[in-house]
């Protein structure tokens, strides 16, 4: 069962365990420079507003009604990260345009052991992008579907799905009881009717230091007889009003503005957790800036390199929040 509450997806599996619950939200953030330098983690600037597709059946693109789920507004070239919270271990698969963000493989509902194609809550507090190499991701950046930028289009040649797809599996109750003594409660705080709405997909942006952690529980720990899925559609912010009648959030600051204000960036220390190798398929993708040049569309705006002066090191349970 999935619920929408305060712009968070709440996944519950009461049939497995009364504590089997986790929350996923989508954080607004600044777009890091896409210049092949590795950056620290950018801040969270608040949650994207989530809306039920079922509340706007007449104004959303036709295919969305069949998918169900939710939608959120993003400006072209705006970035986001996923914030996970909860103490009950969950295996979470995340795909963008039905391309797995950890492996680069095409969407499957089931979990894969080798290569591991999911992240584990609560070990993994955040996911900021596509895993391109060990300890390195490329930031999730929204681009219009059909222009060749998204991971989906670069890998499949099709602009069919866009958005994000998520499936969550809880750990077996027996494993939870066994590991209860080791686990402490952890909550990761966040760091006009017009043309038909344009669907957006996620493309790989700048490089960022972030590890995707290996499953420490073992593949047999997951309760694969139950699962909850959610399709998260993305609509261009400029058309959000036309769909919902509500205003989208304003544009986030640029990396340059944020850094110049002396505000913090972040590094995360995951303790003894082992990091997964990145996905070769994803490593071979063109970033947004590179693709733009290849297409002869000039340079990406607001893409100047920055030198973060304040980098805060965070550990488990610490807040990753911007102050802009």
């Amino acid at each position: 069962m999935i619920e929408l509450k305060r712009n968070q997806l709440i996944f519950r599996f009461p049939e497995v365990h009364k504590a089997a619950k986790c929350r996923i939200s989508f954080q607004r953030t600044l777009r890091i420079p896409d210049d092949n330098r590795a950056y620290s983690l950018p801040p969270g600037l608040g949650r994207f507003p989530l809306n039920l597709v079922d509340d706007y059946t007449e104004s959303v693109p036709a295919g969305w009604n069949a998918h169900g789920g939710v939608f959120l507004p993003m400006y072209q070239a705006e970035a986001m990260w996923l914030n996970f919270s909860g103490s009950y271990p969950m295996a979470v698969k995340v795909a963008a345009g039905k391309i797995n963000a950890v492996t680069g493989e095409v969407w499957e509902n089931e979990l894969s052991r080798r290569p591991q194609d999911y992240v584990v809550i609560p070990d993994q507090p955040w996911l900021d992008g596509f895993s391109v190499m060990k300890g390195m991701i490329r930031q999730f950046v929204a681009m219009p579907l059909g222009e060749g930028y998204t991971a989906e289009e670069q890998l499949t040649g099709e602009a069919e799905h866009g958005g994000l797809q998520i499936v969550v599996y809880p750990i077996k109750a027996s494993y939870y009881k066994r590991s209860m003594e080791e686990l402490s409660f952890i909550t990761y705080s966040p760091r006009i009717k017009q043309a038909p709405p344009r669907e957006m997909g996620l493309a790989p942006g700048g490089l960022m230091r972030q590890e995707i952690y290996e499953d420490e529980y073992g593949f047999g720990a997951w309760e694969t007889s139950v699962r909850s899925r959610c399709y998260v559609h993305i609509v261009n912010s400029l058309q959000f009003f036309g769909v919902t009648g509500a205003q989208p959030p304003s544009l986030p600051p640029t990396a340059r503005e944020y850094t110049a204000a002396g505000l913090p960036w972040f590094d995360y220390y995951g303790g003894d957790l082992k990091a997964l190798a990145g996905a070769e398929k994803l490593a071979g993708l063109d970033s947004v800036a590179a693709k733009k040049l290849k297409k002869g569309e000039g340079v990406l705006a607001d893409n100047e390199a920055v030198e973060p002066k304040v980098v805060k090191r965070l550990g488990k349970g610490q807040v990753r929040e911007g102050e802009f």
């Binding site: 039920l52 597709v53 069949a66 169900g68 789920g69 899925r229 959610c230 399709y231």
Partner: peptide
């Protein structure tokens, strides 16, 4: 009122 939660439907995809 803020605590009111809505169930999310999963469709075909």
């Amino acid at each position: 009122i803020e605590e009111v939660a809505r169930e999310i439907r999963d469709g075909d995809w």
